[in-house]
Structure formats: C-alpha cells, structure tokens
C-alpha cells in the first residue's frame, strides 16, 4: 500500500486540507471556512478527506491506525487538534509547499487572513530567513475584509467591484482609521469601485514594503487567500516592478507543504 500524507492548514479565515502520495501528487484538496472553532473545523476537514477517499479504517481519529495517513497540522490552529502526527509552523510549510509547486521559488509572500509573511528559500526549499507582520491587521486579508464590509460586499467580490475603476487612494494603514476614511470617501460621493481599487492597492503597497525590507530574490511566489484577487496580483507586480508567480492552488501551499513534511517523517 502506498504511503499517504495529509496536511491541514488551519488559518484564521479558511482551513485547507491536502492529501498527497509519495510522488507529491495531490489526490484531494478541501477548503472550509474556519469559523469560530479551529479545532472542529480542522477535524471536519480531516474527516471529509478520509471519507471521500474511503481511508477511514474505523470511526476513530487515530492517526496511528494503519489505514489512516499521517497528518501534519499547521496554521494558527496547529496546536488545538488531537489527531495530528506533528505540528509544524506555517512558515516552514509554506516554504516546502512553494518549492514543490514551483521549484524556482526563492521568495514566498503569503497574505493570509490575519498575518502576512515573507520567506526566503534556498534552492532546496529550506527557510533561510523570514519576516512576519506585526500584531496589526494592516496589509492582511482582514484589512480587505473589514473594508469590503464597509462597502457592503463580500471580500471575494472586491476584485470584481474594482475592475475598470481608477483607484481612490486610501491613506490609513490602520484598519480602524481606514474604515472611517472609506466612509468619508463614500460620503464625498466616490464610486465604490474606485474605493475598492484603492483598498486593493493599499494592501499591495504594504506587502511590497515588507518584501523590499527582506530583499527580493526571484522568483517570487504569491500565496494565501488574498492571492485569489487578480487585481491584487496586478497591483503587487506594479509596486515591485517584477512578475510574481501565482497558481490557482496558491491558497493550499501551506497545507501542501505540511503534507509533504508528513511524507518525510520517518516511521
């Protein structure tokens, strides 16, 4: 029987699960909103993949059960599960995952729900250095989410709303102040699309500063939930003046890396 490994990335907004075989082929991937219970959602993703792939040996969640794959958990919820073979930080997992999807990656920029990070990788995908944002929502998915709410749209709709508009500059980096800024802009009669574009650009600008602080080593791979926004990718490329690599699976890079680490665990 082939060795399988599952990686689960419990983020603040979404929980991602990936099932891998020894050849690093993705057999399945699942995404659920994390909601209020990272523990329950992590477990739900775990069970969902097991059931879909008929891997459940019995109804228990024991990773030592011979049928069940190994499970490596990452993300901020990595410490709450009780079925994990191992917990590894999202920094190491993103490095590993990015290397598998795109071996030329030397810099990963990950913009998640509550934090953003820049990681430098060696040719072999080892973490050489990393930088995380401080304890503040500026430059994260959370910033975009709060701003979307004040525009009355879902964060996933922000890019579509901004399409075709010129940006109205959002000056405040602080989420709380930026929200009042958006409200004033609306009161002044600015189009929602212009503001949406401004929000996207402002987030990209913050990400670019972080990247430049670390030093850009090409190629740069953009991951995390925010990477799904095509206008964000465009804004980031304009700020950096280089092309940034992206994949549809970019949100699963952490889970993928976790699964790959599971394959490396001996025994």
């Amino acid at each position: 029987m082939q060795t399988l490994s599952m990686g689960i990335d419990i983020g603040s907004v979404a929980t991602k699960g990936v099932l891998l075989n020894q050849d690093h082929e993705i057999l399945d991937k699942v995404l659920l909103p994390t909601g209020w219970s990272p523990k329950k959602t992590g477990e739900a993703v775990y069970r969902l993949i097991l059931e879909k792939k008929r891997l459940m040996a019995d109804s228990t969640l024991d990773p030592r059960s011979s049928m069940n794959p190994r499970v490596v958990v990452t993300g901020y919820g990595r410490v709450v599960t009780d079925f994990a073979t191992k917990a590894v930080t999202e920094i190491t997992c993103h490095g590993k995952g990015a290397q598998i999807l795109h071996p030329k990656t030397r810099t990963v920029i990950d913009i998640g729900g509550q934090d953003s990070k820049v990681i430098h990788l060696s040719e072999k995908g080892k973490v050489l250095d990393f930088l995380m944002n401080d304890k503040c929502a500026a430059g994260t998915g959370r910033f975009m989410e709060v701003m979307s709410t004040s525009l009355g749209v879902e964060v996933g709709e922000l890019s579509a709303l901004a399409e075709g508009y010129k940006a109205r500059k959002i000056n405040n980096m602080c989420t709380v102040f930026a929200e009042s800024e958006v409200i004033s802009l609306l009161a002044e009669g600015a189009a929602k699309g212009e503001i949406a574009r401004g929000i996207i650009n402002s987030t990209a600008q913050k990400a670019a500063v972080m990247l430049k602080r670390m030093g850009i080593q090409e190629e740069v791979f953009l991951t995390g939930g925010v990477s799904q926004s095509p206008l964000f990718r465009k804004a980031l490329e304009e700020e950096l003046n280089i092309s940034v690599y992206f994949r549809q699976e970019a949100q699963f890079v952490g889970a993928l890396g976790a699964a790959a680490i599971g394959l490396d665990i001996k025994g």
């Binding site: 930080t89 190491t92 590993k96 080892k126 973490v127 050489l128 990393f130 490396d264």
Partner: peptide, 11 residues
C-alpha cells in the same frame, strides 16, 4: 517555532 525549525533545518 519557525525560527527554531529554520535552525534545525529538518524539513
């Protein structure tokens, strides 16, 4: 933890 993983370079 990430820093210690980096130092240990296991993965």
């Amino acid at each position: 933890e990430a820093f210690l993983e980096q130092i240990q370079g296991e993965y």
